[in-house]
Design a protein around this nucleic acid. Structure first.
Lengths: 241, 241
DNA sequence: ATCTCCTAACTCGTATACAAGATTGTGCCA
DNA sequence: TGGCACAATCTTGTATACGAGTTAGGAGAT
């Protein structure tokens, strides 16, 4: 009795497309098509459809009947709502994680912050972004509530996509972001729940402001062949099976 | 440019199966099959698969590769986690609803509570359950955050299913539940945020205890023909299209 | 030159067929 | 009688074909 559809082609396609969106290889707002994706990955439309449904749940694409499906393209209001919802769930996850496994979770947080410091020294922005994801992931791995985890999954991918697509446009980052994370990790280790909540709120709120600000300065798209763009973006040289 | 897949067969099938699970026509833990559902609804497996994927997201069914898909069958721990997550999101939604539309939301809450009172007088348990759903729904319709709404959707159906499948076994209900709702509606109208949070927490916590207690007393299933059970449960006399 | 309408291409929705893994029951053997 | 192996059956995964709605672009008229 195995778990859901882990090894299915649909999940593999979903992963590839998700990564491409998160890494900015596919632009926000770009329109996709099931036929095109099927051709690119050399699979039929069936797993592609399943993949797009998964991505829709995570808010990465918008499906329209009998019309193109488009990569999500958030408005400023949407970003605010996303960050608000994220804070609501995450501060509770952090509290639960501290209640259940303060030592282990605290150690992991510190370790991730150290990684972040290294990435900043090496000017490795992608590495920093991934460390950022791992940082917040710690709360959910130790919170012990599968429903909070699935709620987090609802906006996890969107947050990651916004980070790589917009954060790079914010001057002063990631140094202020890094200071936040260091602070949060320390407060967690010392069990300062109230201070942690406030710092987490401030951190996510600053993130929100950065994204909204960066959003005001993005238009034009490259006018290249759709197929070739996707082939490069999705790295089809690495076969999906 | 129409919205997602509202009118699709997949969504219709999902609705029907969801209602059947919520109303207790399909037992918790029962195993389904795509072929069977397709036959019952006179559609192909394709929309059935899509429906099951939707229900999986809402936690109503569990999919297993190359094996049966089963209706969810929560453990006590799972119920606790469900209620915890629900409270986290809902108390925030309530706060946002009050901040945005205190008058309208308050009026709707009071109206729903009046409906509840009528249902109790008429001993209409199903009506009471639906009113219960509408009550909590008010917070989300006025909270103005689409992400909180989608988070709520993650456990909305499960909560409804637990209510009809387990709540009837709890003596003293729904009178205590009704008192909670009246209290919450009043506190909301008066803007007593802190008291509302505590009452909401107590309400959901009592709900949790009722479900967990009721869960300890449910085994055996009727041994009827699977197909005929489903045909009756899903009310195939009402064609799906 | 511009606007309108119509057609052709494109997109998703559904049905069907085939393939592969999982389950279950049965019969053989110890 | 108990356990094990095997095969028939059931389940889901994937591919393909067809249909219906949408969109975009071009031809024609003004």
């Amino acid at each position: 009795m195995k778990k859901p559809h882990e090894g299915s082609l649909g999940s593999k396609v979903a992963s590839r497309v998700r990564d491409a969106i998160i890494h900015g290889d596919i632009a926000l707002g770009e329109s996709l098509s099931e036929d095109l994706l099927a051709e690119v990955f050399s699979v039929s439309r069936t797993p592609v459809r399943e993949a797009l449904r998964q991505l829709e749940v995570q808010g990465l694409v918008e499906l329209h009947t009998k019309s193109a499906t488009k990569v999500f393209d958030p408005t400023p209001e949407q970003i605010s709502e996303l960050c608000e919802a994220r804070f609501v769930v995450e501060h509770r996850a952090a509290a639960l994680a501290f209640a259940k496994s303060p030592a282990e979770a605290g150690a992991e947080l510190s370790a991730v912050v150290d990684d972040m410091e290294q990435c900043i020294k090496n000017d490795d922005m992608q590495g920093y972004g991934e460390a950022d994801s791992r940082f917040h992931d710690v709360f959910y791995r130790y919170c012990g509530n599968r429903y909070l985890v699935s709620m987090y999954d609802l906006n996890l991918a969107q947050v990651a996509a916004l980070r790589t697509n917009l954060a790079s446009l914010s001057p002063g980052e990631p140094h202020r972001s890094f200071a936040d994370h260091r602070l949060i990790a320390d407060m967690f280790s010392e069990g300062q729940a109230d201070e942690l909540e406030e710092t987490l709120r401030a951190h996510i709120h600053r993130t929100e402001e950065n994204y909204v600000a960066a959003l005001k300065g993005m238009r034009e798209n490259s006018e290249e062949s759709r197929l070739s763009v996707l082939k490069r973006a999705l790295r089809t040289d690495r076969p999906i099976r």
